[in-house]
Amino acid sequence: MQAYLDISHVGMSFGGKRTSVVLTDVSLTIQRGDYVSIIGHSGCGKSTLLNIVAGLLQCSTGGVLLEGKEVDSPGPDRAVVFQNHSLLPWLTVYDNVRLAVDKVFGRTKTRAERDQWTRHNLALVNMSHALDKRPNEISGGMKQRVGIARALAMEPKVLLMDEPFGALDALTRAQLQDTVMDLHQRLGNTVIMITHDVDEAVLLSDRIVMMTNGPAATIGEVLPVTLERPRDRLELANNPAYHRARAAVLAFLYERHRAPSAH
């Protein structure tokens, strides 16, 4: 069976006098509807890998195929939720999402449909109350919700999330994780998420891709998470399978592949 998203033998080195190899031989196939997390220590090139899938970076070797077509430039079929939300501060919440909707559906949807679709996606992330607010008037968690709405509104084939909750406090992060889990359940998006939070990876993912340390990082291990969906963070606290998965990731990160600075 042909994979939905096929990352094959991707390598990345940055030029200059002394070339530094960031990624070597990264191969990963992802099926439609999969939720895949990529976890690893800082500097293991996980953001580089995401940017290659997004098309924001060109890989030096290997390639990425999405539905059999090669990825060579960025596009709305691979929408990105950026770590720092990257909302445009001069536009309102509504206009930030509408900009994406207009660009992606400008030819296929009428004006009224685009308005409707913008509101619909903001409703999905519970941001209908702040349509006319500007990004600097809402909290960090809300900004990230709008960032997610903007990405979802593009109806991407793959949703790419670069440490989407990294800058949030623990309680807000938990709320957003629940929202994302719920949306994934309802919409069946294919998601690749970068994280360095073990609990988050286990809670949200179908598979956890663990990266070895850089330079020349690659995939060390892929752990399937077979927990039943929908998942509930409270019930999981007493679930042995959850703890086994968690322990496996922790063992990988802190026994076999400790951060370079920890030596």
Partner: peptide, 23 residues
């Protein structure tokens, strides 16, 4: 970040100028 948003959305030169660069 703004450039990346523009690239993901595939804004063309004029759209980028009006919607991102000037503001």
């Amino acid at each position: 970040d703004y450039r990346n948003v523009a690239r993901v959305l595939r804004l063309n030169g004029i759209e980028y100028f009006i919607k991102i660069m000037v503001p």
